[in-house]
Design a protein around this nucleic acid. Structure first.
Ligand SMILES: [Mn+2]
Ligand SMILES: [Mn+2]
Ligand SMILES: [Mn+2]
Ligand SMILES: [Mn+2]
Lengths: 152, 152
DNA sequence: CCATATTTGTAGCCTGTGCTACATTTTAGC
DNA sequence: GCTAAAATGTAGCACAGGCTACAAATATGG
């Protein structure tokens, strides 16, 4: 017992809540894209398989596996080996918020005259940085312009 | 000579252009924030010191150091130990593009009625996902609304 | 049913972004 | 000029997100 710390492990306070800032934000962006896509795959094809996710996300199935493990630790998905991935209640909720935000951003960009393809591409990234207030400004603008009923 | 590969190093083709997709994008976002801030610090205070960057970015000076090393490898900055960080020509160019994009996004959000503080926060993230086409749609909208002359 | 194709899982590597601890260099004050 | 404070650098750790190679399980076609 009483293993001597291997040198640099010193004191190291418990790292209160993950690395901060950008790193965490980026990790969260990826989580949202996953739950959103899982929900979509389940809705349209009945199942969310690792291979499908990988193809759609443009990464290998290995990357998907590791991310799914992380999402499971975070309580967003429920996965068993060789089975379709399921969303937890929290995951479902998050996916719906994400989807709504995503659609609003896309419609908003289109209403500005941005071509559809570009709107979809840009929305994929922008959606993660649009706060509640900005989102409602987008909705208000859509209403003013009478373009497409804002989703929800 | 002829060191035997340590086991898993096998063939490993040269990995054509870095890990792909999101990871790279995120890394690029951070690079843009750095060059933008370096330019701003030089413009307003005459120098970009590690400690200033750290404070402004909300990270430790260690993180800043490592990132600066990466930017130097990438040819965006020119840094010598214990000296203010300088931008290369490429870095300056990039910082100007970033700054312009940043300002347009902020003005655009404000023109929608988003409160200043929120506009700045959201722009900090959104700016990295606004394509050329979307940016010009923002500019066009600003012109239509006659709000502030669009930067540049 | 069984052989083969496909899908999924796992081991182990790299890089980037974060950190603490500690060493070194510069800068400021006296 | 010299000491103390501040700034900068470095070692080494954690973890997320990439990957290739290979192993195991599941699906599919005959
Ligand atoms: Mn997205
Ligand atoms: Mn982003
Ligand atoms: Mn930014
Ligand atoms: Mn910016």
């Amino acid at each position: 017992m009483n293993c001597p710390p291997t040198k640099a492990a010193k004191v190291r306070p418990p790292l209160q809540g993950n690395p901060r800032r950008t790193r965490q934000e980026h990790s969260q962006e990826i989580a949202l894209d996953y739950v959103e896509l899982i929900a979509e795959l389940i809705a349209t094809t009945g199942a969310a398989r690792v291979t499908n996710l990988a193809r759609r996300l443009g990464v290998t199935h290995v990357t998907v596996n590791r991310t799914i493990q992380r999402l499971q630790r975070g309580g967003l998905v429920n996965a068993q080996p060789y089975r379709s991935i399921l969303l937890t209640e929290a995951g479902r909720k998050l996916s719906e918020e994400s989807r709504r935000r995503h659609e609003i951003v896309v419609e908003f960009l289109k209403s500005l005259g941005v071509p559809d393809a570009v709107a979809h591409l840009d929305a994929e990234g922008m959606e993660h940085h649009v706060s509640r207030k900005t989102l409602s400004a987008f909705v208000k603008h859509l209403e003013r312009c009478g373009r497409h009923q804002p989703p929800q």
